[in-house]
Write a protein that binds this DNA or RNA. Structure first.
Lengths: 187, 187
DNA sequence: GAGTCTATGTAGCAGTCGCTACATTCGTAC
DNA sequence: GTACGAATGTAGCGACTGCTACATAGACTC
């Protein structure tokens, strides 16, 4: 027999892949179990209940996304606002990144209704986003940098939310207009 | 007995109020019926099935929101980008407007997964937003105005999505930073 | 080999879901 | 009054939900 913790970790990884691919709508215990190659009975052996499953899985996905972001743009180099926005916008449109953004908007919508565990996780993810941007902006003044970091996140999240609509035109035009503004501001 | 169309319209209004207040999570036929003061049996007498109910109700809510926006800021007067953003941001934070924005993020999340009827409705709402902003921006060049309108919508939607997180700080700071940028650009 | 603990299967409970068959009441036309 | 169609109630179906009681199989200790 295989060690429980090892097996649980494997299951966790498969669950994360499934949730990332299919969102939060198809997450009954039986669906999740099928995706993880086990039974609902075993899921509730590894985890206390469904809420713990979602919490653990979403936390893992958030960590994966953070690692992906860090890998794509190391915190060592700092960019001008317009450049960082361009990089962010390009990354958010990537096939690799899109599932994360779609899931993120689902989590955010759940958090808006105050549903657990989405509210806590959404808070952590949003703060992570902002810190990530703050650490990569080449802006001397602390307060100004924090505000610009917030703007980056607001714009990219808004674009992600609007990406499916009107063929992505609104998201594209909005980010483009902001990039123009930022370029003017920095020169 | 009351005329069927009259009764159906009354039910529709109550359903809209309920969905607006509670979002899409508590929308079982029995929940909806209770909120409308009728029975699930009667809902399926007025409407073909649950999908039609949601479609009709969401369309009605979207129309209400459009009317609310028009009433708050008539299309007669055109504003500078920074001013329009300030007005939009202030309105989105209103107690009257918040339920619409929360529901909007739920609809957008559903649309991102391609679920009917959210995809079609989301498209219509997003286009309405953009046209609304476009008709109120005091910018001479058509292309530039369209891009700025898209930016308004992207920013306000991003802020709405992030409003529940970190006490609203990210949304507030992001919109503030953008307002500064726009003010500088316009002067 | 008996006893014990962990891992897993089987079966099912009580509740909710969308939806429907059937029966009944009511207003109206004749 | 009677016949009829429209409106409404009652009851339930089959599928799904999260979760659990019970049984079993295997590994380990003595």
């Amino acid at each position: 027999m295989i060690d429980r913790e090892t097996r649980r970790s494997e299951v966790e990884a498969r669950l994360a892949a499934h949730v990332l691919a299919h969102g939060l709508s198809r997450t009954s215990l039986r669906d999740l179990a099928r995706a993880a190659g086990t039974s609902d009975r075993m899921l509730l052996y590894y985890f206390a209940d469904k809420a713990e499953i979602l919490g653990v899985v979403l936390a893992r996905i958030a960590a994966d996304m953070a690692a992906l972001l860090d890998g794509a743009l190391p915190s060592a180099e700092r960019l001008a606002p317009a450049d960082l926005l361009a990089r962010l916008g390009a990354m958010a449109g990537t096939a690799q990144m899109r599932p994360y953004m779609e899931l993120w908007s689902e989590i955010a919508a759940g958090a808006a209704r105050g549903e657990a565990p989405f509210d806590a996780i959404a808070d952590a993810i949003a703060a992570g986003f902002r810190d990530w941007a703050d650490a990569r902006l080449a802006v001397a003044d602390d307060a100004a940098r924090a505000r610009l970091a917030a703007l980056m996140i607001v714009a990219v999240d808004g674009a992600a939310l609007l990406a499916p609509m009107a063929g992505g035109a609104i998201a594209r035009d909005g980010l483009g207009a902001l990039a123009d503004l930022l370029a003017r501001y920095c020169s």
